[in-house]
């Protein structure tokens, strides 16, 4: 933020500077168009009837707005051979994402707290070893995970996905909370210890009430990651238990019948709405998560 205080390096004033300034805005706006164009095309396409898509232009506004495609994408579009729309799969995603986010966030919080505030011997090594899980390409765990889920009787179920996302989210959630708790003064913890508070007492009565910023960042990060996941979804679930990303991919690639681009676009927007909303409401925390989740300890 401090650079804001110092004048930007291109200063206003003078004819030449003003031209530069206009140019600057022109370029920035051009890029805004670049990033917004696909979203614009998706929304307008989803509101057009199919005939207008065929005859009309990619970037024109719909002449007659219809929500038919949205209704179809929600409740009757065909995902593979079943034609119940995206609704059941959105429910699957919700049933998967809520417990997975809550459990992995809770475990990450208590793990980060134990590793920073009760610095027992080997705590740093344990953290470094657990962090490694955040870097691996998940292809390297797909095969054994499929077998373990089979043994546990969780293959092809939403519960299996909850387990998978909890396990592999733990590295990130621990990282977020560890980075946060490192900044919390040890004095408070020590004072509480002298007052006779124990491990859990300090955690629930002192540490958790201080941690809402870290909790928000972690929950948003985990929610976005898990909701948007495709690899685990397609590898470990079948048909009825698919999360919405897999279902969306199946809707788009269902080759039977007429290709309904408006339904595809409506389905894509439905799958995107939860994470987009979170981004718009809590973008600041989302960006903080991106910066922290960026591959660094």
């Amino acid at each position: 933020m401090s650079a804001q205080a110092v004048a930007g390096i291109v200063r206003a004033g003078g004819m030449r500077q003003r031209v530069l300034r206009v140019l600057l805005f022109a370029v920035l706006c051009l890029f805004c168009l670049y990033y917004l164009a696909p979203l614009f095309v998706m929304i307008t396409t989803s509101l057009k009837p199919l005939a207008e898509i065929r005859s009309g232009s990619l970037i024109s506004l719909p002449k007659q707005v219809t929500f038919d495609a949205w209704g179809k994408a929600w409740s009757t579009a065909c995902v593979g051979v079943r034609c119940n729309g995206l609704k059941p799969y959105v429910l699957n995603s919700v049933m998967m994402v809520v417990p997975a986010v809550l459990i992995s966030t809770f475990l990450g919080a208590i793990n980060g707290y134990a590793l920073t505030k009760w610095r027992f011997r080997g705590a740093d090594t344990i953290f470094a070893m657990m962090l490694f899980g955040a870097f691996i390409p998940f292809q390297v765990v797909l095969l054994p995970m499929a077998r373990v889920l089979g043994v546990l009787g969780l293959a092809g179920s939403v519960y299996g996905l909850i387990l998978v996302h909890t396990v592999y989210g733990l590295a990130f959630t621990t990282l977020f909370f560890r980075n946060f708790f490192i900044g919390v003064s040890d004095g408070i913890i020590r004072a509480a210890m002298i007052d006779g508070a124990g491990f859990f007492g300090i955690f629930f009565r002192i540490v958790v009430p201080m941690a809402p910023p870290a909790i928000v960042v972690t929950v948003i990060w985990q929610f976005t990651q898990i909701w948007n996941d495709f690899l685990f979804g397609i590898a470990f679930t079948v048909g009825d238990s698919n999360p919405v990303t897999v279902a969306l991919n199946n809707v788009v690639n269902t080759s039977t019948g007429v290709k309904e681009y408006n339904v595809d676009m409506a389905a894509a927007i439905i799958a995107a709405i939860p994470t987009l909303l979170i981004y718009l409401v809590a973008g600041r925390y989302f960006v903080r998560g991106l910066a922290a989740g960026a591959v660094k300890g």
Partner: peptide, 8 residues
């Protein structure tokens, strides 16, 4: 905002 979207 594209970073909030799924690659799918």
């Amino acid at each position: 905002y594209p970073m909030a979207l799924s690659f799918i």
